[in-house]
Each structure stands twice: as C-alpha cells, then as structure tokens.
Amino acid sequence: MLSRWNPRQEFNALSDQLNRLFDETLAPARNWEGFTKFPAAELTEADDAIHLKLEVPGLEAKDIDIQVTENAVAISGERKSETKTEGKGYTRSEFQYGKFQRVIPLPTHIQNTKVTAEYTNGILNLTLPKKEEAKNKVVKVNLE
C-alpha cells in the first residue's frame, strides 16, 4: 500500500518535539507529582548583606528547613496532603504536594551565625550579613 508523504505533518511533529524539549529544559524541574522541586528565588546584594527571597506558599514556618554555610544556603521542605472526602464518592484537588529542596550558592562569604529570617504570606526573606573582609571597601591608591 502506498501512502502520500505529507511534509506539513512531519514539520508539525518536529515542532511539537522541539516545544517539549524547550518546555522541559526551561521550566522548573518537577517530580512525578508535578510539584516544583525548586522554589522561585531572588538574590540581591547590598554593601553589608545579601538578601535572599524565596517563594514557598502553602507551608508553615515549621515545615521549612534552612541550613546556611559561609557560601551557600540550602532550603528544603514538604507540602503535606490533607485528604477530604466528598458526598459523591470522589475528591478533586488541584493542589500539589511533595518535597522540595534547593541549594543556592552565594556570591561572597557571609557570617552564617548572624542570618535572620522572616516568613510572611508564603515568602521567605533571609538577610545574610557579609563577613567583614567580604564587604566592599574602597581604598584610595596614590600614584607617585
């Protein structure tokens, strides 16, 4: 049996494969349950400290583990499932549950014993004071 070659169909298949490749590469990593493994983060650097903001909605402060070294921050936690039953015999939920963890390297050494944290409305704010020698110091150089 002969079949007619359809270049448009081949192009559409190739386009779909490329879209899937870019979606998997650029999207946040997800586990099999669909839960994002890496919470969104924003890192800003000031003269005296590094400020790290992470988006971890739906968690209580007790469910978040923060470990800080002089050059990295490790955040982990877990969203736990609550089972509900409906009168019709099934429950539909679009909430996603699971574990996450993220290690964020820092651009400079910090005083990890003086880190402060604040957690409000699903946003974790860490203030990471720089070590004295890591602060930007301006030194005047004289030319003779």
Rank of each mutant, 00 (worst) to 15 (best):
K53R: 14
E82Y: 05
L59H: 07
E45W: 03
A74R: 15
V68L: 09
A46W: 06
A61N: 03
R79E: 05
S76T: 10
S81H: 10
R79M: 07
D65Q: 11
A61T: 10
S81L: 10
D47Q: 12
E60N: 13
G58F: 08
R79C: 03
V56C: 02
E55A: 13
T85I: 09
I50L: 15
V56P: 01
F38L: 15
G89K: 08
I75H: 02
R79G: 07
S76C: 08
K53S: 03
E33H: 04
L59C: 05
H51E: 08
I75A: 02
P57Q: 12
A40K: 14
A74Y: 07
V56A: 00
F38Y: 14
K88F: 03
I64F: 00
P39T: 06
P39C: 04
G87N: 12
K37T: 14
E45H: 05
E70T: 06
K53N: 04
G34R: 09
G77R: 03
E33C: 01
E70C: 01
I50M: 12
D65C: 04
D65V: 13
T44K: 15
K37E: 15
V73M: 05
G89M: 05
T83E: 12
A40L: 14
N71M: 01
A40F: 08
I50K: 08
S81V: 13
A72G: 00
L59R: 01
K88I: 15
T69S: 15
A61W: 06
I50A: 07
K62V: 13
K84R: 13
K84V: 14
A74V: 09
I64G: 05
E45K: 09
T83H: 13
T36N: 09
K84C: 00
K62I: 13
A41S: 14
L54D: 03
A41E: 10
H51Y: 14
K37A: 07
I50H: 06
K80C: 08
I75R: 01
N71A: 10
A74I: 07
D65K: 13
K84E: 12
A72F: 00
E42A: 12
K62R: 11
T85R: 04
T36R: 11
V68N: 07
A74K: 15
I66A: 08
K53E: 04
A40M: 10
V73W: 03
A61L: 14
S81K: 15
K37I: 15
Q67M: 04
A49H: 14
N71K: 09
K53M: 05
K88W: 07
A61E: 09
T69Q: 12
D48L: 04
E70F: 02
A49L: 06
K88R: 13
A72E: 10
D63A: 11
G77P: 05
K84W: 03
K53V: 01
E70P: 01
E42R: 15
V68A: 09
V73T: 08
S76W: 02
V73P: 04
A61Q: 11
R79N: 08
E45Q: 14
T69H: 11
F38G: 11
